[in-house]
Write a protein that binds this DNA or RNA. Structure first.
Lengths: 212, 212
DNA sequence: ACCTGAACACCGTTCAAGT
DNA sequence: ACCTGAACACCGTTCAAGT
């Protein structure tokens, strides 16, 4: 029997997390401030601190909530293909919330709700003949690659939205063909060349390069 | 003959950049604020805006300066080995300034001063038999992996310095062995397993996986 | 041309007080 | 127990004025 006393809560963690996800979805991760979030749940910024320790804990909650909600695809049995498929599913999941990379990378591992991906990758690697230690290495290499790819793409999009010539464009426009013979031949096509999605190609290379 | 008039400058771009690098070296990238930097050069925050457009341009200048100062290693002739060596040199260079990842990734390419690395990698890839388009893909995959690895390691170090149990530690302590059979067997060794430097292993895998 | 001080519009977070 | 308002200690940047 619950006999807790005191003022009944006006807002819940659930409400806060839901509102936070909505804010990010609508106005991007930069818009998620404690004050904005408070306004969103009809309260004050300081009330939030009664439900989450600080902003970092909030982001962690957010991530768990988000990750747990994503459906898990059926994976092929063959270990190689299973690793690639699990990596791509992980990539898709995190692509949906690029802000998560900044939280996740701190521990080079995902939140509870997202541990399914590393579990699958490590398990498949062991089935492919690696030791558990090697399998962990493989997972981490794949994760670093995934985090780098998503981080890069998120930053590129942000830059594109801001408009105006990027630093790279300025640099590439006056590239010295003597010093950079290869880069100068692709300078004008760089935008197109780098717009292609090469994630799968990279994952396959890593998997093929690391499995016996 | 220079006949420019007006008040003579008290501070120069050079001075600003040098001071900024010193601040970062001494107190980390988080300590680099316009106000702190101004104090360091004996001026006001607002005076800085007469020499750099905004903080982003300052960071770009910083990066160029830093990258240009790094000595370039001699690379082996054999294309595969050259790619690996160039990637590792790039990794070393950027490791020295993890803050650079955030600037660089926006354009998935480096500053002028650092263009040497992609040039070498792309060139070696072409010598290994790839088309220029494929070579650019390889470079980008390597770069994403490199950025992810450095970003992850920088974040891990930051976290370690802060002390206290990480989120991962808490999660791993109560990991369900039924749901995560693989991860739970390595949970207690995770710290050690992930402390190992696997960058070279990853780069070799990518190179071997992508070259014919 | 270059520098300054005051001010703007923000942050995350703490603290003492209210209900 | 939960919420509030005021305040602290910051940010990057703009603007009008000085030399």
């Amino acid at each position: 029997m619950s006999t807790r006393t005191g003022r009944p809560p006006k807002i819940s963690r659930r409400e806060i997390v839901t509102a936070a996800l909505r804010v990010i979805e609508e106005d991007g991760t930069g818009a998620l401030t404690m004050r904005r979030l408070a306004r969103e749940v009809g309260s004050t910024a300081m009330a939030l601190y009664h439900h989450v320790r600080d902003k970092e804990e909030l982001l962690l909650l957010l991530l768990d909530d988000y990750a747990a909600a994503i459906p898990r695809p059926a994976l092929p049995d063959e270990p190689r293909e299973r690793m690639v498929a699990a990596a791509m599913a992980m990539h898709d999941a995190v692509s949906g919330c690029p802000w998560a990379v900044d939280i996740l990378k701190a521990d080079d591992l995902m939140s509870v709700g997202a541990l399914w991906y590393p579990e699958q990758i490590v398990d498949a690697a062991v089935h492919a003949g690696l030791t558990i230690e090697e399998a962990v290495d493989v997972y981490r290499i794949i994760w670093h690659y995934t985090a780098g790819e998503i981080g890069g793409r998120a930053a590129a999009r942000r830059r594109r939205e801001e408009g105006g010539p990027t630093y790279r464009e300025r640099v590439f426009a006056e590239l010295d063909a003597e010093e950079f013979p290869r880069l100068s031949t692709v300078a004008r096509r760089w935008e197109d060349l780098t717009a292609r999605d090469t994630y799968a190609k990279g994952v396959r290379a890593i998997v093929n390069g690391l499995l016996p």
